[in-house]
Amino acid sequence: MKSQISIENVSKVFGRHKALNNVSLEIKEGEIFALLGPNGAGKTTLISAICGLCRQSSGNIKVNNFDTLTHYKETRNQIGLVPQELPLDGFESVYNSCQFSRGLFGLKDSRDHIEKILKTLSLFDKRDEQIFGLSGGMKRRLLIAKALAHEPKILFLDEPTAGVDVSLRRDIWKLIEDQKKMGVTIILTTHYIEEAEQLADRVGIINSGEIILVKEKTALMSEFSKKTTFIRLSKKLKNLSFMKKNKKISLTENGMTLKLVGINNRSNELQSIVNLLSQNGIAFTEINTVDNSLEDIFLDLVETQ
């Protein structure tokens, strides 16, 4: 896949605060790229710089080889943006609001296209209603409809499912997947790691204005994968004095479960522990092993930075 957005050594300084610090990143055509990071990490600033809402202090950003500062019309034409907040003119009707978004991109009104989007997002019945009468979830969907009104090639979604219920979240995920199938490149920021795990092809982690990691999601999961094994005991244990101290092994608070983190199966570590339990007459009822999630990997990376 060819690179569609190229970010080279971009920094953004607000007064004394460096919101972005020498960020370099490539976004590939047709992928879903999830940008993860804690609050204030620089996710929204990076998106704002690409979309033209703020100007980088240094560095270059190119969209399909067009510079975002010198050829802003060419770059912005390709981009649709769904912001984090719900910034809408409440007095306007749903349909007119979408028509306004489309018109800003130099396109004439297309009732068919706008109605199709509104139907997809279950907003068609509300098309003539004023925006301030919509629920929070509907406003969130309307922002997506507005971003799609000019048929963008690149879609930025800045925390698109923040504050929406589970059902709507699934609908938005489906819409994102449908857009991807249509060839749209999607850049997603989210606090819901499950969302990135579900949707993303690649994941980037940003912290304190710096990109600390960019990887294919599957490669990331496998590289940083750690298994956690839980051994449920028949009787409560007070301590682990029967075995050598091992950082990987701990006893849960109720004393009924042994937690083994990052146990290496190749060296038969689990077998040795099970043997040790038997030798000490400690019976157990269940052994359960789980893979750690992207959330665990994200927290590990951010905390150890």
Binding site: F100, S101, L104
Partner: peptide, 13 residues
């Protein structure tokens, strides 16, 4: 209300 983002992120001179 914040909706100015639309104009600022559109190809509008």
């Amino acid at each position: 209300v914040g909706s100015i983002f639309e104009v600022l992120s559109a190809p509008v001179s």
